[in-house]
Structure formats: C-alpha cells, structure tokens
C-alpha cells in the first residue's frame, strides 16, 4: 500500500505519503479522535456505562416552543440555514428537524420549513415526511409547507420575513449555518413575540443569536443535538469522545503556552518530523 501511495511522479510527497506538511498533524488528530469514538461506541455496545452528557437547555426547549405554538393554534417555522447539504452544520440541523417534525405531527401543529439551498430542500422534505410517518400522522404532512424560497441570501431573508408577516408563526427555530440574514429573522421574530430557539457554529453570528433567541445552542451543541435527542448510548458515546478530545486540546494549549514561553515555538512540528 505504501509503495502504491509513493508510486507516482512529481511533485515529491511531503513526509512520505502525505501531500502537505499541515496534513500530518490533522491526520494524526483525526485518527486519534476516531479511535476515541470507536472505543466509546464499543463500550456502549457492550453495555458498559459511559459518562453522562450534561443537560442542554436549548435542546429541551423544543417541547416548550412547539407546545406554545400548539396552544396558540399558530405554525412553527424552521430554517436549516443557508448552507448546502454538504455542510456538517446542515446535516446536524436535519437531526433536530426530524425531532421537531415528529413533535409537530404529534401535537397536530403546522410546520413551515423554508430552504435557501436547493440541495437541502429535497432532504428536508424527506426528513419531515418520514417524521410524520413515524409519528403515525402521514395524512397531516403538507408538501407545500416545505418551501424553497431563493438561493440569494437576502432574497431568502425577504421570503422568510414575508412568511412571518403573513402566516404569523408562534415559534421560530433556526439551527444551522447562518450569516448576515440571522439577525433579520431573529429581530423580526422578537418583534412578533415568537418563542425562538437558535443555534449555529458560525462564531460571528453567535452573539446575535444569544442576544435575540429565548434559547441559544452554542457551537458544538448543535452537533451534539441529534445524539442528545436520540438518547442512544452509542450516539451519546460520540459526544463523550468530543469532551475527551476537548480536554486533550485544552491540555495541549497549556503545554504549548508553557513551551512557547520558553521559546520552543515549533515543538509539535519538531516531534512529528522526527
């Protein structure tokens, strides 16, 4: 295998089989992380106890938001952000969308789901249709409530604001990759008295969500959502692996800071190149 990987011509591979210097540390980190995930999955599958995952208030808020919409007899709006289906944030959002759709089907509450990307539209429709089927309410699914509005950022924002104005949702859930349109949705939601749950891993938009949403999911919380909501030990094991990796990264930052203080700046690169 190594011979095959080295068998091609110029340019010469860096550090043996890797194509660039920076990929070595990334590959080592990925493999270590995958091993941790594999260990915790194996542990959960064999029935051994895995550490508990802390409570995430933002994820427990969906019942409250949908419950309130049900009481008011008004719809719930859900946006998965404006990224394509290739974004991990969008994929994470679908895990939450399935849960939200199931709750809406259970409570017989109308769910309006809007899309800014063509690729998310088809997937979202299937996720919602399947959720209604699993909830035993396939008849309640309305394909016209899953909408592609525009792939133009502010065209999509205008479309969502129009829906807020015309159809007056009581709850607004925005989970996924958002940019400047995020605040337009959230402020309009505040002005209309909606209960709002929002989350993103786009750091620049997080302050806007924290300032305007009733419940905000911060960065990695949206990735942990589907595992948290499923309550399956195997899925929760991967969230615990995230926490372990975070502890390791924190320790590396402390060690790096100390070594950097003593002027050994490229210590990790030096170790890996040996």
């Amino acid at each position: 295998m190594l011979g095959l990987l080295l068998a091609a011509d110029e340019p010469a591979p860096v550090l043996g089989i890797f194509w660039a210097d920076a990929t070595v540390a990334a590959f080592v980190a990925t493999v270590l992380f995958a091993l941790m995930v594999w260990y915790l999955i194996a542990r959960a599958r064999s029935g051994l106890k895995i550490p508990e995952v802390r409570k995430l208030p933002g994820l427990d808020a969906f019942d409250e938001a949908i419950g309130r919409a049900t009481e008011m007899g008004r719809p719930v709006h859900y946006s998965p952000g404006i990224s394509a289906v290739s974004s991990t944030q969008t994929i994470a959002s679908f895990g939450i969308l399935g849960h939200v759709a199931k709750l809406c089907a259970k409570y017989d509450t109308r769910l309006i789901q809007t899309n800014a990307d063509i690729t998310t539209y088809g997937v979202a429709e299937e996720v919602i249709r399947q959720a209604y089927l699993e909830a035993g309410r396939p008849d309640a699914f309305n394909a016209e409530d899953v909408r592609f509005l525009s792939d133009w950022q502010f065209g999509y924002a205008s479309g969502v604001l129009g829906i807020f104005q015309r159809e007056k949702p009581a709850a607004n859930i925005c989970i996924g990759a958002f940019w400047a349109e995020a605040l337009l949705f959230m402020e309009a939601g505040v002005n209309q008295g909606m209960i709002q749950v929002a989350g993103t891993a786009n750091n620049a938009q997080l302050p806007f969500f924290v300032a305007t949403a009733d419940y905000a999911l911060i960065a990695e919380e949206i990735y942990a959502a589907s595992a948290y909501l499923s309550k399956e030990p195997v899925m929760l094991g991967t969230v615990v692996a995230e926490d372990w990796a975070r502890i390791i990264v924190f320790a590396l930052i402390i060690v790096g800071t100390i070594l950097s203080f003593f002027q050994q700046k490229n210590w990790l690169g030096g170790i890996l190149k040996k």
Binding site: A131, Y223, A224
Partner: peptide, 27 residues
Amino acid sequence: IAGSLGAMATALRITLGLERAHLGGAQ
C-alpha cells in the same frame, strides 16, 4: 476548536452510519 471537534464527531457518526436523520425521519 469546540465547533471543529463537534463537526468531526458528526462526520464520523455519518461515516459509520450512526447518524441517519438526513436520510429521513428522527433518529
């Protein structure tokens, strides 16, 4: 950093077939 680790965990769950929400329905 926290977001990147979360994205990696999600990618691994999808690769291993644990995360199936995007294929339709809740988990």
